[in-house]
Design a protein around this nucleic acid. Structure first.
Lengths: 415, 415
DNA sequence: ACTATTTTTTTCGAGCCTCGAAATAAAGAG
DNA sequence: CTCTTTATTTCGAGGCTCGAAAAAAATAGT
């Protein structure tokens, strides 16, 4: 609830419905009694809310569940989200690749499609056409039991504005300011979320390991570019205008190496794959960076760095320094938080760890920077996917199924 | 309302009471009709809320107001906060100085006291004793009509933890982890807020110029240390643990100049007054920095820098670069926001502006960094004071007078 | 002077919501 | 087949906001 917004009696119900749905989302099968325990709501209220939810078809009673508990007394009846009440779609836009997936309301994959698209030359129209074609395919082919499409989430490699669901700029497309949200929303008649892939990764980590990634943590994607998704006080951190915390474009070295964004000295200009390869190839650090670095080359370089102490190892050390210096500055602003390193760069953590930790260590009057918790996830794609899915599902839980009736714009075109 | 907190019907009333009190706080005299227009609540609800507020003595009808509007119809009756319902106290702790002030609930100063205290040698007990003595003096001497003390806000030069109302570390005291909150709270039986002085400055700017300092802005204090108070999406930004965004300790130059915090290369090690003087005096940049820089010396140096292009001017340029590089990194994370420079450093903005703007300019694929809005406030003390006052008053408005009854711990000791 | 008009504020009932207590439902235990 | 235990629903009390109507308090007009 916004601070300057007026509260109405139904807001109470909305909020409590969210709590109930959140409990069901966390643990697949939950009884009303469990919900009472988890939320703190009274049994009467839980009864009222679940009855309404069942009547609306959002949740259902599940008798087939493990009736193992042969305790005395009336048995609890398990409730569960109704997978068929809605379908959601996710779209991942990466370099030369679009990946679209359909999920049901419980988060089970219904269908998926990959498509190689030359994004570096693709116009806005090309991209939109490809995405729509893929979604149309998937939607037509899905089983009759699947619910209607109710939300789309896009994770893109680029700078986004969440409010307008727009991709402001991307290193992988020639066009800028692409309103994916408006286009898809008009075509499919549903709300569309567009966010940076790093935001999606953070969302995924939180749902995968809520203990480790709880209130405050950072997910840093080390790949063609370097981005960050940040949770602070249990909320996704978004900037004033664009939604991404552009960790990769914090300043590492004034007037330093040329970055793909056109400025000089960004962390990315030292720590991204193109920066590492540029350095190893002996090019000037102001040379125009390569647009696409293939995985095989990167892996080979990493292997050479591991086997002998040469230019390669030095390049990774430089990368570690850049990331470390960024973390040091970041931690000055927000205090140290657990960090997840994601993507190809996480696969070479052994080559950058020393320099990275070295940068963030050092005496500080207060904060405790030692024993910083860093986990690595070399494959970013499953996380981006999962994050998109969670974004859509949480949107349904909190925005569409929370008010209790169809305040959301109704589907314009049945699919 | 926290995301995972359960909503009750009375929460609605609490929120709407906050809205009414906020309207009264913004514009001193407001009629019920005005409140209806400002909040969007129905006349019935506003009537109910104001009636309760009047019965509780929190607000009152003010007939003496300008009854100039001789329009037709029943005249509006102006409502106003009752200044005598509460007294609040603010304490500013700065280098060698404690400043304590009493205000009424409308924000009018009742009494104040300055005291010079050698903070660099003062123990925790010394500081607490001084503060309590000052507060006792002020509270005893205040007029009989003044309300009882209901909140204390402290703005300190140091790193604080808002949750525990503790000063974790400060450059101006020998002791660390001083629980001002607990001590004062136990003694005066009221809630105590302890925050970094920069947070207070940001709070003050927002109340002084809500147009310019609205949803997103940064207040940067350039003084003995360099700190920042940040508003993002209309909320005070606080880190994961400590409450301050330690802008001054972001990394400017890896392995660079020695900072007062013990690390190397912090922005503060280049841009604070001690850093500037260290450089001009020809000392090594790893020399232990001076503890206290007096204003006269600093002004003199600034004058020399203005009159001739020598070591002095170079030092200020260095400072401008350090601040600029920090802003560049900050803006990468949160997007560019209006900036207020506060304190002595703001008085020499002419000497640092060029280098500062130079650092943050440059092409960027998305954000618009040009025409960055920077305002200067050379005297930080009035802002810190005002910020402390607003912090306390808003606490009363939203935490104590919002629930409608005395849920807050009652005064243990009448004063 | 007195009524009509206009504007502000309060009152009243409907329709939400949560909650506690009591009632009902559905099992195992004896 | 009844008793005990546990889960869930029902019901009434007490909040809350809101719209409509009523009451209050001024000016305007005759």
């Amino acid at each position: 609830m916004l601070i300057d917004e007026i509260a109405r009696p139904d807001d109470v119900r909305r909020q409590n419905r969210r709590l109930v749905l959140a409990a069901l989302r966390r643990h697949g099968l939950v009884s009303r009694t469990d919900i009472v325990a988890q939320t703190g709501l009274s049994p009467s209220t839980v009864s009222a809310i679940t009855t309404a939810l069942i009547a609306e078809g959002i949740i259902g009673e599940s008798r087939d569940g493990d009736t193992t508990s042969h305790r005395r007394g009336r048995p609890q009846v398990a409730l569960t989200l109704n997978p068929e009440i809605a379908t959601i779609a996710t779209v991942e836009l990466a370099l030369n690749l679009i990946h679209a997936v359909l999920y049901d309301y419980k988060g089970h994959m219904i269908a998926e499609e990959f498509r190689r698209v030359p994004t570096l030359e693709a116009t806005t129209a090309d991209l939109i056409k490809s995405i729509c074609k893929m979604l149309d395919n998937l939607l037509e082919g899905r089983p009759a039991t699947a619910g209607r499409l109710m939300h789309i989430s896009m994770g893109v490699q680029g700078v986004t504005d969440a409010a307008s669901a727009t991709m402001l700029w991307s290193p992988i497309t020639p066009d800028s300011n692409i309103s994916f949200g408006a286009e898809l929303s008009a075509r499919y008649g549903v709300a569309v979320a567009v966010a940076n892939d790093c935001n999606m990764i953070a969302e995924a980590l939180r749902s995968i390991d809520p203990v480790q990634y709880a209130e405050d943590f950072a997910a840093i994607l080390l790949s063609h570019g370097i981005g960050m998704g940040l949770y602070l006080k249990g909320q996704q951190f978004v900037g004033a205008n664009s939604s991404a915390a552009e960790f990769g474009h914090m300043l590492h070295t004034p007037n330093g190496a040329l970055c793909r964004c056109g400025r000089h000295g960004c962390i990315e200009a030292y720590a991204s794959d193109y920066a590492i390869l540029r350095r190893i190839s002996g090019q000037d650090e102001n040379a125009q960076p390569a647009q696409d670095v293939d995985t095989a080359t990167f892996d080979e370089v990493a292997d050479r760095a591991r086997s002998a102490d040469g230019e390669e190892r030095a390049a990774f050390r430089k990368a570690g320094q850049a990331i470390g210096s960024g973390l040091r500055s970041l931690f000055s602003l927000i205090d140290p938080v657990p960090v997840a390193l994601v993507g190809p760069g996480a696969g070479v953590f052994d080559l950058i760890e020393d320099e990275l930790r070295n940068m963030i260590s050092g005496t500080s009057g207060w904060g405790v920077t030692k024993n910083l918790n860093i986990n690595c996830y070399p494959d970013e794609h499953p996380l981006i996917l999962q994050g998109c899915m969670m974004t859509s599902l949480l949107h349904l839980d909190t925005q569409i199924f929370a008010p209790g009736d169809t305040k959301e714009a109704p589907l314009k075109r049945a699919i």
